[in-house]
Design a protein around this nucleic acid. Sequence first.
DNA 1: ATAAACTATAACGTAACGTCAATGTCAATA
DNA 2: TATTGACATTGACGTTACGTTATAGTTTAT
Lengths: 254, 254
Amino acid sequence: MEYSINKLAKLSGVSSRTLRYYDEIGLLKPLRVSATKYRLYGQKEVDKLQQILFYKELGVELLGIKKLLEEKEFNVAGALKKHLSSLEEKKKQIEILIKNVNKTILSVEGDLEMSNKEKFEGFKKTMIENNEKQYGEEIRKKYGDKAVNASNKKIGDMTEEQYSRIEKLEIELNAKLKEATTIGDPGSAIAQEVCELHKQWLTFYWPKGTYTNEAHCSIAQMYCDDERFKAYYENIAPNSTEFLKNAINIYCKK
Amino acid sequence: MEYSINKLAKLSGVSSRTLRYYDEIGLLKPLRVSATKYRLYGQKEVDKLQQILFYKELGVELLGIKKLLEEKEFNVAGALKKHLSSLEEKKKQIEILIKNVNKTILSVEGDLEMSNKEKFEGFKKTMIENNEKQYGEEIRKKYGDKAVNASNKKIGDMTEEQYSRIEKLEIELNAKLKEATTIGDPGSAIAQEVCELHKQWLTFYWPKGTYTNEAHCSIAQMYCDDERFKAYYENIAPNSTEFLKNAINIYCKK
DNA sequence: ATAAACTATAACGTAACGTCAATGTCAATA
DNA sequence: TATTGACATTGACGTTACGTTATAGTTTAT
């Protein structure tokens, strides 16, 4: 029995376009083509299509399916296991998204100055990335992987309450930084108060026991070097990045 | 402060291509463009980009983000909830995939005539779909949603052991159907035995108490009418679809 | 003035088809 | 037999969110 393209399509539940595409990419060639270029499929092709659809249902990509079917003994189980772990990865990702969307819904419904919160979220992300990128290696060496992961987790898992506490801290910090910057003396009482607040803010994010004067100074330097942080602080007051660095240098040497 | 495209890109961590694309689709337009066509972004744009990236992290599509930001009050929470349920749908899908891939790995490692099993899997799917499409409405009316869902669930949740039992049943059924078809008398003892096996096979898939002689007859008719089923039976023996229908008609009227 | 660095538009590529459009073929009917 | 309707073909664009060249104009630094 030979099947025309539409017969096979109906039989298998896919479209004829799909069959043409599978032909095109060499995944499923017809048994033969007529003199008038019509595709004709046989029983073997029907069976192969079944296999293809089976793997497709498992979420394997067409290229992967092709390999699975071509290389008869090329470790099907191994390939499926790799596929499995990529599925599990995706699942984790989605779970994280679900968690975050849920949080966001809560905060939207609470309607609490969403946009401020969002900015903070964005900045928080920058923090995590930066914390990791700039200090990750260093800290990992000193304190091991656990500390770094704990820190990142800590940031990611912050509760709403903690958000608002740190948000308040940040608002105060920013307001005073602005004031201190306009006054202009990095050694002034208010500038040093800013440094104290900044220390609190930092220690909130960092793993226990990792705060040192040197780390504080180098963070301040980093603020000046990294455009993302700079953009954040320049937004508070012009030149406040530089000013903060100077103040912190004084603060840490006292 | 105005930002060039690359400044903004570095500041926000996306590529300049991305910013051009966002401009193109109207998601984020620059504050102004210079006489020489250079894009220039202001603080407002920086903030908006933050928002965009925030939603993007939540897995919202760009078009969705656009709507969220454009329609200031167009029910952000509602949109996010819709997004949430689509995420949860995806998660369920992936969980199903994971389950099936796991099963498949088991059976591949057990190396038990995989291809037969696969064919069955494919056919099983056809069963579910068809059961639903052809009889779903009817059965739902008679027995309510619960029965249908229970039936589908039953099929989806079959254990390995159950698979092998039904596989054996099916092999016997097919072998006898082939024999009976070549003999040719739908009233013969072997043909009627085939009907009995077929009934067992059917009742395995159908919800308790739904089997009737009429349903059995109409299933047989459906086999003749539906190309997918026909292809399956014709593969066993030519004309066996028709033969089976005739035999079942006799069987049910005895 | 010239090179280096930056910016612009345009166009193709990605995965797996859906959806036309223009054209050719087959079986059955008037 | 000519026509009609169903079915087939290739070709090409659209989908998502950009990455990646390629080519050409602009700004900045030396």
